[in-house]
């Protein structure tokens, strides 16, 4: 049963990340995802200090606020002072992440947040944190419910907003000329990335969530030329990474999050080599 819960949570989060990551890489914003995943840390700590609990809602609000602030800062440095995009990303997220680290170490006594846990996640603890109703009924691990809720929300967002996301991702200028609110879609997507990151924090950690955001969509991008198929395939690669990662970790008795990211990378490598061979064959024919 423990294995089931861990793999389920891993898969739910992997699919959420894969869906959003597909849009991030098509918008050439993969590293913005990286930045957000790190920069939400101070938001979480501040929310924790203010609310005094590890309730999900304040943390989500704190993380979302910092996530949006990150994208605003990146754009600001980039546009107002002509700083290169990558430099502006590098400054913004390291600075915010550092503030988060300082806050954690300063309030270590009061904060039930562990630096290791924040950085590397601890998906193995998922089955321990159960949601038990007031009548004493065991609803299963809490994270499962939170991660399912997140995925449902994202599916709704992508289903209803498919056209908006599609046109602003492919050709922002044309969308603007049609009178479509380009900024709305940008910040909606960034807000979604922030939410996903903070929920993924507990399970895979701040560093490895980037792997789930970027690697499965990049793998899917190699083999498809249809956005809908890309979303589907990257979700499948995400799930495969979660399953493979769990068993790899129990085989070598290592970190589950690390194993999930490694499997994702391995899958990418396999697909990349296969594609290379296939193209070679097509040319030689």
């Amino acid at each position: 049963m423990e294995a089931f819960w861990i793999i389920l949570v891993g898969s739910l989060i992997a699919v959420s990340c894969a869906l959003l990551g597909s849009y991030l890489i098509l918008r050439k914003m993969a590293m913005v995802g990286d930045a957000i995943s790190h920069a939400v840390l101070p938001g979480i700590v501040i929310a924790y200090l203010l609310s005094g609990s590890r309730e999900t809602l304040p943390m989500l609000v704190g993380a979302a606020a910092l996530g949006v602030l990150t994208t605003v800062l990146i754009e600001l440095f980039h546009k107002k002072s002509n700083l290169q995009m990558d430099a502006s990303i590098g400054i913004t997220f390291t600075w915010l992440f550092a503030i988060g680290i300082i806050l954690i170490s300063l309030f270590a006594g009061q904060v039930d947040l562990d630096q290791d846990c924040v950085l590397y996640g601890e998906i193995a603890y998922v089955p321990l944190d159960l949601w038990i109703t007031e009548s004493g009924y065991n609803m299963g691990p809490r994270t499962v419910w939170i991660a399912s809720g997140l995925l449902l929300l994202l599916l709704l967002f992508i289903w209803r907003g498919y056209k908006g996301l599609f046109i602003t991702t492919f050709n922002e200028e044309f969308a603007k000329a049609l009178g479509i609110g380009v900024a709305f879609w940008h910040y909606a997507l960034m807000g979604a990335v922030s939410l996903t990151t903070v929920i993924s924090f507990e399970s895979v950690g701040a560093i490895l969530v980037v792997a789930l955001l970027i690697v499965p969509p990049a793998t899917a991008y190699l083999i498809t030329t249809d956005l809908k198929k890309m979303l589907l395939l990257s979700s499948i690669f995400g799930i495969l990474s979660a399953i493979g990662g769990y068993y790899l970790a129990s085989l070598i008795n290592g970190s589950i999050a690390g194993a999930i990211a490694s499997v994702a990378g391995f899958l990418f490598l396999c697909v990349w080599v296969l594609e290379l061979l296939r193209k070679k064959r097509v040319i030689s024919i």
């Binding site: 098509l26 046109i167 492919f170 200028e173 044309f174 969308a175 249809d226």
Partner: peptide, 27 residues
């Protein structure tokens, strides 16, 4: 409005029909 051809990424995963249908998108 027809933007410059080079202003978009033609490796984007979409079909010709997908792109032309964008002309039907409205606010």
């Amino acid at each position: 409005y027809v933007p410059q051809r080079e202003s978009v990424d033609w490796d984007f995963p979409a079909s010709v029909m997908d792109i032309v249908l964008m002309g039907r998108y409205k606010k």
